[in-house]
Amino acid sequence: MSAEKPVFLVTGADLASDALALLRDYQVVFAGKTPTEDEIVALCKQHDPVAIIVRYSKVGAAAMDAAPSLKVISKHGSGTDTIDKVAATARGIKVVAAVGANAAAVAEQALALLLACAKSVVTLDQRMHAGHWDKATHKSVELEGRTVGVVGLGAIGQRFARMADAMGMRVLGFDPYATELPAYIQSADLETIWRESDAISLHCPLTADNAKLVNAKTLAACKKGVIIVNTARGGLIDEAALLEAVQSEQVASAGLDSFAVEPMTAPHPFHGEKRITLSPHIGGVTADAYVKMGVAAARNALAVLNG
């Protein structure tokens, strides 16, 4: 190693000061704003970290093999799909996540996207700035009394469901691992969610089994005019199928915060489609969540290191 203190490698350019205070007995090395996998491997070879806090990029077997002292990989957030968990398990490396630390932030972003779609917020703003007054011709969607299907009922999904219930929506929820659901979530299978939902919000992790869960077949099974919201992982959606469904008006509108390839680069098929509202995977990026996730990621890693 390059220092007397054991090293924490952060695959990002910064970490909340409260989190850094917890790591005062360690040297903290930052990989930069958008590190590549190769850069992470090189830093692992150089510093042999005992822990990695994952913010951006992927951590695979090569990085693990380059750090023989590595004992824990801690996700700065809840989704661990960017970590090769099979490789970690094979090497005796613990993978932990800051589950729930960004739940409020992401659930609020999902609600914001749902409302933006239902109320045509972006389109009307652009029309107003261009000098138009569409009061006589525009009709928004009223969400009270409508049904929202929530796929994934962890901390984020349940928080979103609670907000939807507070607006008077009927909430259908699907999660094969969720137990003891609150009374306002009606457990349903996916077929029921596709068939009965006026809006669908995705809050599940991305796995090999649910990749492109929202696809041409499932979208065709939905109500005509459904709203699709995704603040989870872009790989849950077949983007070409969603675009086609929006253009055919099978899907009325979509609000997306995550994408199959990130960062999204121009040109992209979604660009210019007025009924798709986009945000750059910032659902969990708030000042409060930044601190909560950093502290949780540090504490989770330290708990492993301290046995």
Rank of each mutant, 00 (worst) to 15 (best):
I282G: 04
Y290L: 03
S74M: 07
A289G: 06
V246H: 06
R170E: 13
I53N: 04
G152L: 09
Q46A: 14
I52Q: 02
L190Q: 07
K224M: 06
L213C: 03
R159S: 13
E39A: 14
A19H: 02
I40V: 15
R55T: 06
V10I: 12
L23V: 07
Q109A: 11
V10R: 01
A87F: 07
L236Q: 01
N102Y: 08
A301W: 05
A245T: 00
G131H: 08
A42T: 10
A118H: 09
M167E: 06
P68D: 07
L302V: 04
T277Q: 07
H138M: 12
A19N: 01
A188C: 03
I53M: 07
I52M: 05
R159P: 00
D48A: 02
G149V: 13
A16M: 01
A254W: 06
T82P: 10
A296T: 07
V148I: 15
L242G: 09
A220V: 12
D189H: 14
T265M: 13
L153K: 00
Q27N: 10
K223P: 09
A110R: 05
R159V: 05
R170M: 12
L9C: 05
A296Q: 08
R24W: 02
K212A: 15
C117A: 11
A67F: 01
V304T: 04
A221V: 09
S279L: 14
P6Y: 02
A63E: 01
E39K: 12
D288V: 03
L302M: 08
I237M: 08
D175Q: 12
H129Q: 15
I237T: 04
V7Y: 02
G168V: 03
A287D: 07
P280G: 12
V226P: 02
A240V: 12
G255W: 13
L236D: 02
P176C: 09
T34H: 14
W194Y: 13
C222P: 00
A220H: 11
V54K: 11
A216F: 10
A245F: 09
M163L: 14
G294Q: 00
S74F: 02
V72G: 00
T147H: 05
R233T: 04
A51C: 10
G294E: 05
K274M: 13
E191H: 10
A199V: 08
D257V: 07
K94T: 15
G235W: 10
H132R: 15
Q126S: 14
L124R: 09
M64L: 13
A188S: 15
